[in-house]
């Protein structure tokens, strides 16, 4: 029964990961890729962690599992926002940026 729960949850987690990756590959522009990704991979990792939570031997490992998931959400959420800000001005001149390897906000550099 416990194993069945784990199987279902990890399988669901994998599906979310797969969906996230699909979005990352298929979506046309940086921002939509970002959205697809952050939602999918955190949910995916959460489901996998949930599935494994019933397998851990002790409370310490359970705590670690929760901490790992919390950290992943925190990191992904914050970085997605930050990266989105970086990508934002770049949207204005995608072609030019793509040529020299990406945006780096040089126009705002002070002397």
């Amino acid at each position: 029964m416990i194993d069945l729960f784990t199987i279902v949850m990890t399988a669901a987690g994998l599906i979310f990961f797969a969906a996230g990756t699909l979005g990352l590959i298929r979506f046309p522009d940086t921002h939509s890729r970002l959205h697809a990704l952050t939602k999918a991979d955190n949910l995916g990792l959460g489901l996998i962690a949930l599935g494994l939570a019933v397998q851990v031997p002790g409370p310490a490992d359970l705590f670690k599992l929760i901490l790992i998931w919390a950290l992943a959400i925190l990191a992904a959420g914050a970085t997605a926002q930050l990266v989105a800000r970086i990508a934002a001005p770049a949207g204005l001149g995608d072609d030019e940026k793509a040529q020299d390897g990406g945006s780096d906000g040089q126009e705002r550099r002070r002397p």
């Binding site: 990792l45 962690a49 997605a80 990266v83 940026k97 990406g102």
Partner: peptide, 25 residues
């Protein structure tokens, strides 16, 4: 593939999260 640096970085984040998942398993 890129093309934006942000794309590359976000993809690396996915590798990181996926890596965490693999390690849990």
């Amino acid at each position: 593939r890129g093309p934006e640096q942000a794309d590359r970085m976000m993809a690396a984040q996915l590798v990181g999260t996926g890596g965490v998942g693999v390690i849990l398993l």
